[in-house]
Design a protein around this nucleic acid. Structure first.
Lengths: 269, 269
DNA sequence: TCACAATTGCGCACTCCGCGCAAAAATCAA
DNA sequence: TTGATTTTTGCGCGGAGTGCGCAATTGTGA
């Protein structure tokens, strides 16, 4: 019976067109309340809608969920790195942001600053788009939904038309003397183009990435750059980087997670 | 009694940290169910949360709202146009999508198809990114948060490297013989580049746009194209377009909201 | 300390939800 | 076409969640 499928699609449309209550939906579709409830139950268990008391609304889009699952790995370390990196950015800077959850954490901390931002990180677009203090440019290209970023020839073409004061890179792994590694050559090619266009290069990598060489595509960093990592890194991990000429190492202390500063509570009203 | 304010903040935090039900909230805060319900009622009427059956979730952030407010203008007409336009797309097509709420409505209907999609419409990215049947390319450029799209030299540069079978354009106004108009030259310049790269051009415009010339930047359409509009258009509005050589007029009937074309239901799985 | 206002907890009537069951409709096979 | 099977639908019921009135409690200011 394909009527049910049609009806569920119809229900979705009606909900999209302004939140409707169960009674209204039943009247519009000329079916019983039970049927609407059953359909809504199906739609809500498939994640398309969220039930409310007496109705339903559209669920927020899925990307949130997939993002947040990755976000939660080494959350504290990433936040500490992001906080340290945010302190390296000055108002008025033009900043180039790569993909990766650590860079995303940095992006969230930059959203209220006055900056010129260029990125291929699609997850950050809604964050910056709200601000009118930020001049936002997005690199085009093919969208890889896993990493929520753009890559490929179009992205490289675009980045070569730009320059930036500061580049913040993510990586799957980083090894002193060999550079950083990623899963595909495509990702590396774009990072390489980015590196060429930036005055300063910062690599954000938590302790688990240091010395990790589990990916096949490599980008050597034959220029001065700064490694920003967290206090979970051992001295054995850090030493090789400290010895490299041109490399600066910044260790972010991951003491306390985000606490609202005293005296700010009133501003929340 | 400032305890209530504190408690409401606490409730918000708890909801933020994963959807909680009323019973759970009451237990955590060590207050009665009534109190939690009263607080939730306040929070929901102030728009901070949305009540669900037995609990509450965070309301979606404001940007959605501003989008949907635009979305709701002539909703039925836009949906009818989108439905008609969706029937013009065949599986396997490479499709170029412009910005605009009508084009967004079309995008939502294409999300489960097998297509190659190129767009500067940032609002559609989360829609397509979920699908693995869609090869998605985004045009880069400067982000205009009002229209949630990318524009400027980078976008034009990127689009000139691509071609598409079908282009679906939005517009602020369209006048027979003069073409379409937009608020800025930047928007028009990108549309012009798009038109040059597409084999077929479709302009999606509801009746309120036909004959409307309230914007200063114009793009003449000196090539065959198709106007897709809704049944709200009068014959006086349509006649000038019908008389133009090379222009096809499609009037979408806005009788019933959104019906999936027969034979497509299986593709929705 | 006392009066007043705000807040809280509880009971109650009401609404909404999910489930079981039987009728109706659609699908399939012969 | 006919009949058996599966799916869907509508209805009634018990249970869960909600909002409201009322009384008790707690905080506030004179």
């Amino acid at each position: 019976m394909r009527r049910r499928r049609e009806r569920e699609q119809h229900i979705l449309d009606l909900i999209r067109a302004g939140e409707e209550n169960v009674e209204e939906l039943a009247r519009r579709l000329d079916v019983s309340l039970s049927t609407v409830r059953r359909d809504l139950h199906r739609l809500s268990s498939s994640g398309a809608v969220t039930r409310t008391y007496g109705g339903a609304i559209l669920s927020r889009p899925a990307p949130e969920a997939t993002l947040s699952s990755r976000e939660h790995i080494n959350l504290q370390a990433k936040q500490a790195i992001a906080a340290a990196a945010a302190r390296l950015v000055e108002d008025g800077d033009s900043v180039l942001l790569d993909v990766g959850s650590t860079v995303e954490a940095l992006g969230l901390r930059l959203k209220d600053r006055r900056l010129s931002i260029v990125t291929n990180n699609l997850a950050l677009l809604p964050v910056f788009a709200i601000s009118d203090e930020i001049a936002l440019t997005v690199l085009g290209g093919n969208v890889r939904s896993i990493s929520m970023g753009t890559f490929g020839p179009l992205a490289e073409l675009a980045v070569r038309r730009l320059t930036a004061d500061k580049l913040f890179l993510g990586a799957d792994g980083v090894v002193a003397g060999r550079g950083l590694c990623e899963a595909t050559q495509e990702q590396v090619a774009l990072k390489e183009a980015m590196v060429q266009q930036a005055a300063s290069v910062f690599l954000l990598a938590d302790a688990s990435k240091l010395g990790s060489a589990h990916q096949p595509a490599w980008l050597p960093l034959n220029r001065p750059w700064t490694l920003v990592t967290d206090s979970g890194a051992t001295e054995e991990q850090l030493q090789p980087f400290r010895e490299l000429p041109g490399v600066t190492v910044v260790v972010a202390s991951s003491e306390l997670p985000a606490r609202v500063p005293a005296g700010l509570e009133d501003a929340l009203d």
